[in-house]
Design a protein around this nucleic acid. Structure first.
Length: 459
RNA sequence: UCCCCAAUAGCUCAGUCGGUAGAGCAGGUGACUGUUAAUCACCUUGUCCCUGGUUCGAGUCCGGGUUGGGGAGCCA
């Protein structure tokens, strides 16, 4: 019977026989006795196997290389030594897949840069085991959170023809021959392409999400998102996962309240459900992580207007590399100063100047701001961006005209404002940024199984 | 895309003033009946990123390139 090491440690009875499989992490050989740590990915620590000279293949087993796949039969017993409560006294160890000294993942510290070059093997390491267990559990927690609140989960398209949020950032999807595409007036004739028009990979499911919110009231999307930007930073990837809830009959305050509940829920979830891995991060990745997450889970998130944030930055006496002035966007240094110095915790910035935000955001009565919000958190900066949407057709089309956005391709989006339009709001949260925030990992490439970034699509 | 930094053994790194490369880990051999990425002793391991230059002589200095990292912009 197959049993994971995690389950063996949960329901195994001492004194009883057991059988499991996994990969060798370490072999410690003493005179006539070998200690083998085996891990199958189901938990962080794996389990210690004690092999004694009586085993028919003791000689072979005591020379097992790090990384070998083995199947173990034995008896679960109390451990007489410090370091673990229980261990397995081996009765038989069969070598399923050997591994030799050329195995790139040896039992020593490696740099994250090196481990990225062996992304096919790094999930077998402690850190990446913990990262991807956490990532998996958090993905499930996202669904759990929305499910508990009766949000509808909608799968918005990955291939899209809406090119409205700024050209150049979409990955083109085409079946036209790259060397000799059909031409019309010297440029490729996309009417002859597979979909009969220009298409690309989605940069956001928001616009389609809004359509579903205007039918199901509360919805969310959770799926892959693609940006063809030449971003080379620890926080950007070409392919990432985004969570985008959208609520009908909701305003900006409702939106912020949901975001606050959501972030706190995920913090509590990680602390409670991923305790072993979270302790590992606390010990080896970021000292004080548990305390930091605990504080977020219990914090009251601050809310301040963009205008107020500008004033407080200006009167802070701090010197910045970029100017602080009403009408200019907040730079990373400003955002971090607000959340780390001025507030000392998570903070929403609300009501940004209209001219630095997207066309679909709801215009406020002051004539110069929109109902947009960013959630800033210490250490990372912006983690969530959202807004109340412009539900008034005339205001929306006016804004599109001002910003030079063609209305025709978005006829379906505008239709939603034509019949039964209502106030609604939503936000986007980068899933990887959440995983980074909760694990203390500092590079987005280290929380994605096989990251895609400019010049990198290996594996 | 811009700015800064780096590249030496399988991995992590040191390498002085320019004089022809060495530690730890991994691997090998041995020791030790309870180890905790075991410990101890001995042994093995090199396209010093590529390319051009300066020099009697370049891992080291200079130019160009490649790759990686950090920061910024764009954002999630």
């Amino acid at each position: 019977m197959r049993k994971s090491i995690c389950n063996l440690l949960i329901d195994g009875t001492t004194g009883e026989g057991c059988r499991f499989s996994g990969w060798v992490r370490s072999v410690r050989l003493s005179k006539g006795i070998a200690f083998i740590t085996v891990n199958d990915g189901s938990n962080l620590g794996g389990i210690q196997i004690v092999a004694e000279q009586g085993l028919p293949n003791f000689e072979e087993v005591s020379r097992l290389g790090t990384g070998s796949a083995v199947q173990v039969s034995g008896v679960l017993v109390e451990s007489p030594a410090a370091g673990q409560d229980r261990e397995v006294r081996a009765e038989a160890i069969s070598i399923i897949g050997p591994s030799d000294e050329t195995y790139p993942l040896q039992k020593k510290r490696h740099t994250f840069e090196y481990l990225r070059s062996i992304a096919h093997l790094r999930p077998r390491s402690n850190t990446f085991g913990a990262v991807f267990r956490l990532r998996s559990r958090l993905a499930q927690a996202v669904h759990q959170f929305f499910s508990e609140r009766k949000f509808l989960y909608v799968q918005t398209p990955i291939i899209t023809s809406s090119d409205c949020e700024g050209a150049g950032e979409l990955f083109r999807v085409t079946t036209l021959d790259a060397a000799t595409p059909p031409l019309v007036d010297g440029s490729p004739d996309f009417s002859q392409d597979f979909f009969g028009q220009r298409t690309g990979l989605t940069v956001s499911g928001q616009l389609e999400g809004e359509l579903f919110a205007l039918a199901f009231s509360d919805i969310y999307t959770f799926g892959p998102t693609f940006r063809a930007e030449n971003s080379n930073t620890a926080r950007h990837a070409s392919e990432f996962w985004m969570i985008e809830p959208e609520m009908a009959f909701a305003d900006l305050a409702d939106d912020a309240a949901l975001a606050e509940d959501f972030v706190k829920y995920l913090c509590r979830f990680a602390l409670e459900e991923c305790a072993e891995d979270m302790s590992f991060f606390d010990k080896h990745i970021e000292k004080g992580l548990l305390e930091r997450i605990r504080k977020i889970a219990e914090a009251d998130f601050a809310r301040l207007d963009y205008g107020e944030a500008i004033q407080r930055l200006q009167s802070s006496g701090a010197s910045f590399n970029y100017p602080v002035e009403w009408g200019l966007d907040l730079q990373t240094e400003h955002e971090r100063y607000i959340t780390e110095q001025l507030i000392g915790g998570p903070a929403f910035i609300l009501n940004y100047p209209r001219d630095i935000k997207a066309f679909y955001m709801r215009q406020n009565d002051d004539g110069r701001t929109v109902a947009a919000m960013d959630l800033l958190v210490p250490k990372v900066g912006e983690i969530i961006g959202g807004s109340q949407r412009e539900e008034r057709l005339d205001r929306l089309t006016d804004r599109m005209t001002q910003m030079g956005i063609a209305q025709e391709p978005l006829w379906w989006y505008l239709d939603s404002r034509r019949w039964g339009s209502c106030p609604h709001a939503g936000f986007g949260l980068g899933f990887e940024r959440l995983v980074m925030y909760l694990s203390g990992m500092e590079n987005i490439r280290d929380v994605i199984p096989f990251p895609r970034t400019p010049r990198h699509a290996e594996f």
